[in-house]
Design a binder for these strands. Structure first.
Length: 451
RNA sequence: GUCCCGUUCGUCUAGUCCGGUCCAGGACACCGGAUUUUCAUUCCGGCAACAGGGGUUCGAAUCCCCUACGGGACGCCA
């Protein structure tokens, strides 16, 4: 795979190898919008056989960067966005933390002083603009011209360099070919283009991607909005591949009506020119739907591996639970789950006698018949059954229904509620078989006696 | 206020560059039906959009202009 990519770049000899970067500042959160920016950079690098760089813009000393960096790195890894250069992996253009690049910034700043483009005022260093409109070459928007009218600060009076300067210097020093970032930076880009020219450099190609808007209300999504943080989905046991898949479809489309895409399909089809121009509203329901689809499609073994931590977290496995039993439960539940986070409520009655009961379903069942009577009839018959297996149970319910002139559904509803407290769940007969005769009869007895 | 970007079903989008095959396709959500057990699974069906107005053209969702609306940026934040 790696070799193939290298070959591809060599074949398109005229274009230098693509180098893109994701340059977050560690704030302690990994915003879903940042994640998508990272994803688009990653996809483009992988598509072109280029290099994906992770650069940490940690110029704010106030924050607890240790912990904040962890959130970022964990989030990136969780989403499967591996970087070729950056923290933990190194590279030829480091260091990859801006807090460690002071000498490089001073060196570049000197160039601006030498050419008269930088001057001091009020203790800060200012950049002298050219007075001409900057041309922003953007693969998504086309050419955008913008006049940067006023000089701006590039080094604060406390000596620390400003974002605009370090961003451009790093992009030059790291030989970035494409700057893929949020549209909120489009207006900044005229400043950056001016700086590139002042350093005697051709600016990189820009790709300003549309923003992600709040689900309801106006404005872009912020970290305060529900569902806006990557770590939240991780905590809720969403599958990272589902989150990644949803994110790549927000502002980009493979143009063939396909939605579930494997990573290799994604990287193969991804093009910057195919990115939309307009902002997209975030839709948690669609994400949840996609997550459910991924969960149901998981190979069973894989599903088990991912479900185990969820069972543990719900304390379902605190006692001694046989591995076979767990597997049987998971086997019948997988096809019905909307997401791993539902396991807590969906599977509780398999592991505890102290499971929640949905009173509303009971009322509904009671309105339509006499569930207690059906439960008693079933209980008597179930005790006598030779073998407590799905086929036998199905035959038994059919017999009861025939004998009493009732619908099988009446027995099923009553018994399901008695043993699970729910009106929904896995296939009924499989459910009983997995629970086993002893547990089923005990729960039926409890219900019949209690009323 | 100034500058920049945008505008197809409620939402994400295909179609726009290269005008006719689009009385606009897919998906989520919603509504209905089927699976003679439910359902949150699966299958089938339904609802629903080219922001408005002017051009150009035999013909415009697609090209041009204006208006309206939405978004972003205007920091010694990043």
């Amino acid at each position: 795979m790696r070799l193939e990519r290298r070959e591809m770049t060599q074949n398109s000899a005229a274009t230098p190898s693509v180098r893109v970067r994701f340059a977050p500042s560690p704030t302690g959160f990994f915003h879903i919008g940042s994640a998508r920016t990272a994803l688009f950079n990653w996809l483009y690098a992988r598509h072109c056989g280029g290099t994906f760089i992770l650069r940490i813009e940690d110029t704010d000393k106030e924050r607890d960067t240790e912990e904040a960096l962890r959130v970022l790195i964990d989030g990136m890894r969780w989403l499967g966005l591996d970087w070729d250069e950056g923290p933990a992996v190194g590279g030829d253009f480091g260091p990859y933390f801006q807090s460690q690049r002071g000498d490089i910034y001073r060196e570049y700043l000197q160039k601006l002083h030498n050419t008269g483009r930088a001057y001091e005022k009020d203790g800060a260093v200012w950049f002298r603009v050219s007075g001409k409109p900057a041309l922003i070459r953007d693969v998504i928007r086309g050419d955008v011209s913008r006049l940067e009218e006023k000089d701006f600060v590039i080094v604060r009076s406390d000596g620390s360099p400003v974002f605009h300067l370090v961003n451009v210097v790093d992009d030059i020093a790291m030989r970035i070919t494409h700057v893929i970032r949020g549209e909120d930076h489009l207006s900044n880009s005229s400043k950056h283009v001016e700086l590139f020219h002042a350093f005697g450099q051709t600016p990189p190609i820009f790709a300003h991607i549309p923003l992600i808007l709040k689900t309801v209300g106006s404005g872009k999504m912020s970290k305060r909005d529900s569902g806006s943080l990557v770590e939240e989905y991780r905590r809720r046991h969403f599958l990272p591949e589902a989150v990644r898949n949803y994110l790549c479809l927000l502002g980009w489309s493979p143009k063939n009506d396909r939605e579930i895409l494997s990573p290799s399909e994604m990287t193969q089809l991804f093009e910057l020119s195919g990115i939309n121009h307009n902002n997209a509203r975030f839709d948690e329901k669609k994400l949840a739907h996609m997550n459910g689809e991924y969960v149901r499609r998981l190979p069973f073994d894989d599903f088990c591996c991912r479900a185990m931590p969820v069972l543990q977290e719900a304390h379902f496995l605190d006692g001694d639970v046989a591995a076979d039993y767990i597997h049987s439960v998971l086997r019948i539940c997988q096809e019905k789950l909307r997401g791993l986070e539902d396991i807590g409520t969906f599977c509780a009655y398999f592991f505890s006698e102290n499971f929640p009961r949905d009173e509303k379903s009971w009322e509904k069942i009671s309105r339509g018949g006499e569930p207690l009577a059906r439960a008693s009839e079933f209980l008597r018959a179930a005790r006598e059954l030779d073998e407590f297996a799905a086929e036998n149970l199905e035959a038994l319910v059919q017999q009861l229904a025939d004998a009493h002139g009732r619908k099988t559904g009446e027995y099923i509803h009553a018994v399901r509620y008695a043993v699970s407290g729910q009106s929904v769940g896995p296939g009924f007969y499989a459910l009983l078989q997995v629970l086993g005769r002893e547990r089923v009869c005990r729960r039926l007895e409890a219900l019949v006696k209690s009323t």
